[in-house]
Write a protein that binds this DNA or RNA. Structure first.
Lengths: 139, 139
DNA sequence: GTGGGGCTTCCCATCGTGGGAAGGTCAAGG
DNA sequence: CCTTGACCTTCCCACGATGGGAAGCCCCAC
């Protein structure tokens, strides 16, 4: 099995989580307080790095830190029901889908407006006109 | 022509921008400082409400306050070239598309994982396994 | 003239992240 | 043994956009 404990900098390099964020996660109780050397340096064992990679991956998947707290609890709970994990993931998916729809609507509206905007040196621009006209349902 | 100046509360109700945000926009120079009554109350004329609705609409379209600053400048500039507006809008669209793609990737990955997760009471769950396995390119 | 609602400013919190200062530690090289 | 430089520690501040709330003034209707 691999190496012993490493310092925070190596942990950061090895997990893709910045040292700053590792301390933050510890401070907010997302991860357990790290072991310390006699002089106060934090030490990370392989299992700690594993947890950090878990957090990193979940952040990459767009989970909030609070969601990750729940996921980690389920992860550490050997008797967890997969239904809970699945529900959490699917709830997050629908959240993602909602955000995607919102962004899609914005993008479509702007593309429509831009399509009718000459893009030349004339000052007529339906984009500004639309903005000035106030909110309405997009096409 | 319509009414005279209104107070910040009425402006908020009339534009959908909270009083708090109106003050913030003024403080950060996004909108011009409002006129004041003798006793210090802010007063908003129809043209101010127009600008606030412009900001509101642009926020709804996902523009950052900094982007809106540029849009407002172009709006106020009667000799603006529509090309600039169009470029700003399209650049924002590609930003939106990038964010959509990122969210889409997350959603797809999670849906794949959830599809292989029993969702029953057994503790086997590929979602947690994947998170624990660290980052990899999604399927 | 009093009560209640609206306005003012000021400070604080959020969420996740980064920057930087002031100071202790450690390992390598002279 | 001492210096140097890279690393670590804690602490505070900042972002962007928004909301909450306190303390205090103002205005209108009764």
């Amino acid at each position: 099995m691999s190496a012993d404990a490493v310092t925070i900098g190596e942990a950061a390099r090895g997990t893709g989580v910045s040292a700053k964020m590792i301390r933050y996660y510890e401070e907010t109780g997302l991860i357990a307080p790290a072991a310390r050397t006699a002089s106060g340096y934090r030490l990370y064992a392989e299992s700690d790095l594993h947890a950090l990679r878990f957090v990193r991956r979940a952040r990459d998947l767009g989970f909030s830190v609070e969601d990750i707290r729940a996921l980690l609890a389920l992860w550490h709970d050997r008797a967890r029901a997969s239904a809970q994990v699945r529900a959490l993931a699917l709830s997050h998916v629908s959240d993602l889908r909602r955000r995607i729809e919102a962004l899609e609507g914005m993008a479509r509206t702007l593309e429509n407006l831009a399509a009718h905007c000459g893009g030349d040196a004339r000052p007529d621009c339906p984009i500004l006109d639309d903005l000035a006209a106030g909110p309405h349902s997009d096409s």
